[in-house]
Design a protein around this nucleic acid. Sequence first.
DNA 1: CTGAAAGCGCTTACAG
DNA 2: CTGAAAGCGCTTACAG
Lengths: 370, 370
Amino acid sequence: MSTSPRPDASNRSDGVSRAEGAPLQARRAGRIKIQDVARLAQVSPSTVSGVLNEKSNVRPETRQRVLDVIAQLGYTPNIFASNLARRSTKLIGIIVSDLLNPFFAEIAAALDAEARKHGYETFLASTSFHPDKQCAAVRQMLALRVAGVAMMTSENDPEAFSLLKGSGTPAVYLDNNHSAPHIGTVRVDKRHGMFIAVQHLLELGHRKILLIKNSQQDSAEPPLLSHQERQIGFDEALHQYNPKEMDVHVIDEPGDPASAGMRAVERALKQYRFTAVVAINDLVALGAFRALQAAGLQIPQDVSVVGFDNTYLCDFLHPPLTTVATPRADLASNVVSMLLSYIRGDGAPPEPMLPAQMVLRQSTATPQAT
Amino acid sequence: MSTSPRPDASNRSDGVSRAEGAPLQARRAGRIKIQDVARLAQVSPSTVSGVLNEKSNVRPETRQRVLDVIAQLGYTPNIFASNLARRSTKLIGIIVSDLLNPFFAEIAAALDAEARKHGYETFLASTSFHPDKQCAAVRQMLALRVAGVAMMTSENDPEAFSLLKGSGTPAVYLDNNHSAPHIGTVRVDKRHGMFIAVQHLLELGHRKILLIKNSQQDSAEPPLLSHQERQIGFDEALHQYNPKEMDVHVIDEPGDPASAGMRAVERALKQYRFTAVVAINDLVALGAFRALQAAGLQIPQDVSVVGFDNTYLCDFLHPPLTTVATPRADLASNVVSMLLSYIRGDGAPPEPMLPAQMVLRQSTATPQAT
DNA sequence: CTGAAAGCGCTTACAG
DNA sequence: CTGAAAGCGCTTACAG
């Protein structure tokens, strides 16, 4: 292995067991190499390489013999040597904003599963919403020579994009406007998702609504695109009704989403009257639940709450959370197939817009007559 | 990059720009190499390598010149070539059972941060509790020639262990009994954690207690060690009191933790009487909350609940969940420092046992007199 | 402080 | 269907 400073002593400088070629004792990964299996199987390294990479041009018997030796020796090919020689990798880089948010965790898991189906492995990095780390993650991916990167972040560092663009590495973003010949985007229709969420509330009769956002970055930076879209959907829904009737407040609370949701509600409770809250994501809704319940308010009798994303948490809140589903599995398969298309050099595939859907549970109801 | 099937056309077979050595247009990652920067900086590749790896033997001016050229060219070293030549990597493999469980997600995040502090990058795999996938993950890590692996799983595949053992790759397990010259364990005192959790309940006056476990594997397999330990702690606590007084039930419900917790409670409600539930982890507690609340029971007035792990969720449940804290940050730093010690060849470090602590919130109370 | 040369362990035309 | 040879892009003694 790679760890011992001791120089490699096994090059049979003694010349004794030369003829036998018996590296059987050297089972530490990395110690036994394609040469060794070639010798034992009485073929050339090229042939071993052939069976390893499932080329069709190896006779079944030979193939089996090689496979046996590989198993017997516990041989693991050195991926660095093979990637170096091949000048390409079977790796897809995944960059997410926050692994602790189930939304991103589920995306990462789905992408990993999807990539594996196509023979790719996956390398994961999390940015914690810091543009700097996004850039560092891209560098890391480039050094790894990933075949493509799935940039599943809500924040967005221009430098990361230009690194990617400059490198020629295929990439697909989530809900973004960036593009390049080898860089695309898959979108979720968050605008419409927010539209139907608000419409749902309006139809129930709510007119005093609190929208809680959760920007992570400095207010200096431009708002997240996905927030903008949701804001638009929010406004569009309101405009179906008479704006005069409406009493709407928006709070943008930074920090970790659940705490932000909690703080936002605590603050809002002192300042505004509202019968419904729209949380920018489920975790924010979780925090909102907590603050509402701590204040002795009943959900949905006193206040309705709707979330966004349809993470696994929704089913387990009390009451279960009405939310907007963003199709994670679809998203993953779209991202991977776009990436593959770029990787194969098939040119720019069409950029999908995935639909969002209302999921009704029990956190919304008609507001109480007051 | 690696993706285009087009053969490399840039070896200046035209012989034109030979003298200039101007690969400036070739900014795609992987296209420009150490030779190129060496030429432009007017040094040898060895020198460039020296500055890249922060060897001390490069004159500051030379070093700066090289750095400038690197920046100018946007050069990213090919990690495969360097790992191959170096015969070691700066990679630590992390294997967890389930990224969707905040417990594991937090461990992964903490390990990643800790590893980075020491100049290592991290490669993450998730097993979904399948021993097969654990084994596959180990193979993957070995092929990557990671310097060490952090096996943070609750399930445990003997074959994965023997692969690791045979490979000589340093590894550290979480709460396990495996060991080898280069493989160790860091333990969390779950026995005592469970002990204090149950003691807390007993002191409050509870005597009818439901313990909910969540084994993931077939009942054919031996129970998880970490479950055994918790069971022992559970029993020890009970034995402080008169066993006759006790009315204890244990349900082991497979499947995803939150759903399992929910199903377990639903079933228990029909069969047993209990005033307190002990959940094997916070996510199970989340499901238990849901089922209890759906049944119209008040927490903690009707039923007390205690969780395990102290994940971020606890603060946001209603009421906030009393639980046992397992020290994730400590755990991560211990794991990494053990790994580093093995990697450096310092021999087997002492195996730490980290303490668990009771975290009192509001999900437990004296049982109602009935 | 710096460079020339060998080698890391594979893969890939190419020739048979 | 199989093998000999060159090459992938680095690092590391070693010599100066």
